[in-house]
Amino acid sequence: MTIREIAKLADVSPGVVSRVINQDPSLRISTTTRQRIESIIKKTGYQRKTSRYEIVILLALSQKRVSQDPYFSDLLQNILIYCRQNNLKVAKTIWLPDNVALAQLDKLHGVLVIGPFTTAAIKRMKRISNAFVLVDDNTSVPKTNQVKSNFDQITNKILDDFIIDHRNRISFVGGSIERINQSGKTWNNLIDLRLSTYYEWSKKHTLVPDIINVGLTIEDGKKAAQYLLNRKKETNYSFPNGIIALNDLIARGLIDTLSDNQIDVPNDVSVVSFDNLMVTKIKSPTITSIEIPTNELANAAVRLLRDQINHSLVGTNIITVPGDIIYRDSFPKIK
């Protein structure tokens, strides 16, 4: 008896049966449906396979970038946790994979790809792989199972709220990241989705984009603040009254330095960042931040890959995990 046959008897999708078998805590079905599936599983004598499927995780990011960026670090750790829970053995984690590494993908049961890769690289990996899921990359490749966040929608929401709050001198502190091609080399700079959203939004509202390209640490945030303070001395430069920071660490360094130099946050300038780390609330002013649940991203990605390997996935699945705005001192919620 297969998962597909059980699904047909229970009048549900194979994916639902697979998630019941694997005791997926995020599955939301009625008690009656769950009992019907479990009863059929018991009557048919279905036995869950105990052999572990071997997969590989490919990252288009350096180990240094992941270690500096809590978002990607948390995402990777959660993926490893859910792999263990779903009987998937991570045979290898490959950073900035090259042609040699990509050529070996067909020897494993599945591949989890954490972007950003070029479209050509994604197509090649997908063609070689037995099962394939693209994680946290908004590149559009037809018929590709994908899990991503709604960075674009939530960035637009913050920018619109800035305008409602009469803040129309808006800067973006953060920078581009590198897109990796199928040879494992930098192909070109990929503008982060949040940054590209900011840029397009600025053009739409006939505002001049003001982008301060820095790294990802608190020290980088301090440098960005000092850069803004130096420019403030120029008579032809208008200091921002709204700032989006690429992550919380940048925002912490930025806000602390501005506050030390008599710039009032949020009255003079409001600041919003991403990740909702502990650093947002360790001191005043606390930081308004976007929480993207890496736990849910990881769970959905591993589940998609597992269901492909089990042949219980139907069609192409694109899952968007929404973020939440956690309002604090640096940009209070507009009443």
Rank of each mutant, 00 (worst) to 15 (best):
V12C: 10
D136I: 00
P97I: 06
D256A: 08
V66L: 11
R303V: 05
G184T: 09
R34M: 13
T33A: 14
R194P: 05
T33F: 08
K92D: 12
I163F: 12
G110R: 01
T139W: 00
S270T: 09
F132G: 01
R127C: 03
F72C: 06
K126G: 02
V17C: 02
Q146I: 03
S13M: 07
H109P: 00
I326L: 02
Q77C: 10
I325A: 07
K333S: 12
G184L: 08
A103C: 06
T2Q: 08
K281A: 11
A103P: 00
S270F: 03
I29A: 10
Q85C: 07
V135F: 00
L190D: 11
K233T: 12
V272W: 01
I57M: 04
D324Q: 15
F331D: 04
L88Y: 02
K157G: 06
T197F: 03
N247E: 01
T235N: 13
S270A: 15
L229K: 04
I128P: 01
I191A: 08
T186E: 10
R36C: 04
A245C: 15
R48V: 13
R306P: 00
G323E: 03
Y199I: 11
V111W: 00
S202M: 11
I290R: 05
L105V: 07
Y46K: 06
L58I: 06
E178W: 10
G45F: 02
V90R: 05
Q85N: 14
I177G: 12
M125N: 02
M278D: 15
V147P: 01
Y53A: 14
V17Q: 00
N188K: 13
A91K: 13
E38C: 02
I263V: 15
W95C: 04
P266W: 00
L96Q: 11
W95R: 04
H205Q: 13
P240D: 05
A251H: 05
T288R: 06
L159Q: 09
S289D: 04
S149T: 15
V302D: 03
T235P: 09
L108W: 12
Y198D: 04
F239T: 02
L193M: 08
A298P: 03
L216G: 06
N168T: 12
V12A: 10
I164S: 12
L228E: 06
H311V: 03
I158L: 13
I154C: 10
P285G: 04
